[in-house]
Design a protein around this nucleic acid. Structure first.
Lengths: 143, 143
DNA sequence: TTTGTTGCAAAGGGTTTGCAGGAGA
DNA sequence: TCTCCTGCAAACCCTTTGCAACAAA
């Protein structure tokens, strides 16, 4: 019973963080966890099966989840907020396919050397960075 | 007459790109060129000396300038568009000081090796990336 | 004179707030 | 029961659009 177990873990995490377990929160997390790409609030709501929650509720919860490091908020040139579930709380980046929209996490961060070079060039001490990667996923790039 | 010269160069660039030379455009460029950080539209207008143009005009021009690669549009978590003048049209990144807000360009891109590592990890072919750097500038980091 | 530009006002649309009713614990 | 949450509607506010007047060329 993998499902049962997953749900139990998620509910425990909610409670452990001081949240009440509501069907809305469960639905938001379920949608985000099973999505292969960043989702807007509208997209999150439309993907809720059997349950439809209000827009403000989703925003409020997403904001709280972000404070706990559970979701990452991305906002691109279209000015729309999109959210991704972070399976790892370690520093990581997301690569998104420009053709099919699928996104995956790249664990770890290979930027160490590059950042050092940029620190030397700029004279700044770089403390934080945000990298967004775009390209072609394995399926889309193969012919 | 450095000023005269700079202005002449800028006006020629405008004309060369098919733009008419208007005081609004001149003012926008002047503000952006002399700014040491990304500016919102509101900030751009408030910094215009002796001339005040309408909000839509600034947005429209900024959009056109961006299409010519003259300005870069950044939008952070606060959802507000900010614009920086790009002195070079080559690929580059910006580092912004988290304390004083000053931002500088880092010419070139030291990410080649890091991107290759991430391509290998993800299986994606990475075609485009956007990197935002934050840290402490030379003045702010000293002590 | 021709045609690109500007400015005003209004529309647009994603996000946030206020508040009363509802439901976890 | 006691709070926390949710949902609705309205408020917000940055950005865009429409259109008539204006000005560069």
């Amino acid at each position: 019973m993998v499902h049962r177990n997953t749900n139990a873990v998620r509910d425990a995490a909610l409670r452990g963080a001081g949240f009440r377990v509501t069907p809305q929160r469960q639905a938001i997390i379920r949608v985000l966890e099973t999505s292969d790409r960043p989702l807007s609030v509208e997209e999150i709501i439309s993907r809720m099966k059997g349950y439809r929650s209000g827009v403000p509720t989703v925003y409020r919860n997403l904001q709280q989840f972000a404070e706990h490091g559970w979701v990452e908020t991305l906002v691109g040139p279209d000015q729309i907020m999109r959210f991704v579930w972070c399976s790892t709380s370690k520093h990581h980046h997301h690569v998104q396919c420009e053709q099919c929209g699928r996104a995956v996490e790249v664990e770890g961060c290979a930027l160490k050397r590059a950042l050092e070079a940029m620190e030397a060039k700029s004279g700044f001490r770089i403390t934080r960075h945000q990298l967004q990667l775009f390209g072609l996923c394995p399926e889309c790039k193969g012919e």
